[in-house]
Amino acid sequence: MRLPEKFNFANLPTKIEKLSRLSEELGKEIYIKRDDQTGGEISGNKIRKLEYAVREAIDNGCNYLITCGGIQSNHARATAAVARKLGMEVYLVLRGNQDSELEGNYFLDKILGAKIKLVAPEEFNSHIENIMENIKKELEKEGYKPYIIPMGASNGVGSLGYCAAVEEILSQEKELGIKFDAIVSTVGSGGTYAGLYYGNYIKDNNAVVYGINICDDAEYFKNIVLKLFKGISIYTGEEIHVDKKDIDILDGYIGSGYALSNENEIEFIHKLAKLEGLILDPVYTGKAMYGLVEEIKKGTFDNHKNILFIHTGGIFGWNSVARSMVK
């Protein structure tokens, strides 16, 4: 698999740990890849994508990054940190209101000196691409050369980060003497899952790549993933042809909605923290791991022995509402 040049910001390879007590409880060998430990201010899965996307921006002579996300976006925070590491300016368009609490990722965005535009949810959901394009035009008038990174860096170049992560996982399998027959990740914007699936396919690896969506629905993301495969192939030079029915996204774990927690999810995250000393976030990994455990109980993973869950980070996303639900 041919990949373009990238920056090296993340602490890689991230380690793989066995969740021994959860494995015993469920009768499966469950492992976790600690992509929450890719860094501090850049922690989480987004930095793998940004290593490629921001390298493209720099190679094209750009000096200003524009991106978007929710008020507690891990991607926006990581983008702001990377921009500052490279001496670039950064503009974040965040889905939120003026009374949004200044905490978590939003607070870190401010600390990093990002220029921030808060947009009400309805307008954000309907017009975010136009909003970022208009910001780009205004910055160009001021003499900047901006580069737009889509939500979650989930485009062709960003998804390369998880194509490369597959090569990392295959190398670690040899070191650990383990063969993972299932790889599971959260699906929030599609790029992480698309990269894992594409890399797994190109490498002719016989693991099944599962996604658990935490917003929208499986049908929506299957269409997104198919488009991302085409975007990835522009950079790798290798197209893949996948039938939509062969994309394994497990629906049903959105709960109360994107970035909204319910008591069952928080109780599960709390239980796992006490069981394994592992802290998940309420927006992404908490919902996805909850979904994985429920699907194991349902028998979805009966044909799998060694399951690898990708911990995509997000600990800064614990807001006051989610924290108040911990008993």
Results as ranks from 00 to 15, higher is better:
286 G>L: 07
188 G>K: 06
248 D>L: 12
284 Y>P: 02
224 I>S: 03
189 S>F: 07
235 Y>K: 02
277 G>P: 02
292 L>D: 01
225 V>M: 12
218 A>R: 05
296 I>Y: 01
210 Y>I: 11
234 I>W: 06
296 I>L: 02
187 V>G: 12
164 A>P: 00
219 E>N: 08
200 N>S: 14
173 E>P: 02
190 G>D: 09
172 Q>V: 03
266 I>P: 00
230 K>W: 04
297 K>R: 10
279 I>L: 14
249 I>V: 09
225 V>A: 12
248 D>R: 14
247 I>H: 06
220 Y>W: 05
224 I>M: 05
214 I>A: 08
287 K>I: 05
197 Y>G: 01
276 E>M: 09
216 D>H: 13
213 N>A: 11
288 A>M: 03
253 Y>I: 01
280 L>N: 02
246 D>M: 14
297 K>C: 04
196 L>P: 01
279 I>C: 06
198 Y>D: 08
226 L>F: 09
287 K>N: 03
209 V>H: 01
238 E>N: 14
216 D>M: 11
226 L>R: 07
269 I>P: 02
259 A>Y: 02
172 Q>S: 08
233 S>P: 03
235 Y>F: 15
173 E>F: 00
173 E>S: 07
187 V>S: 13
203 K>D: 01
274 K>V: 15
206 N>V: 12
300 T>E: 01
229 F>M: 12
190 G>C: 10
300 T>Y: 11
285 T>R: 00
180 F>W: 06
187 V>H: 05
165 A>W: 05
174 K>C: 11
190 G>I: 04
172 Q>G: 05
232 I>V: 12
215 C>Q: 10
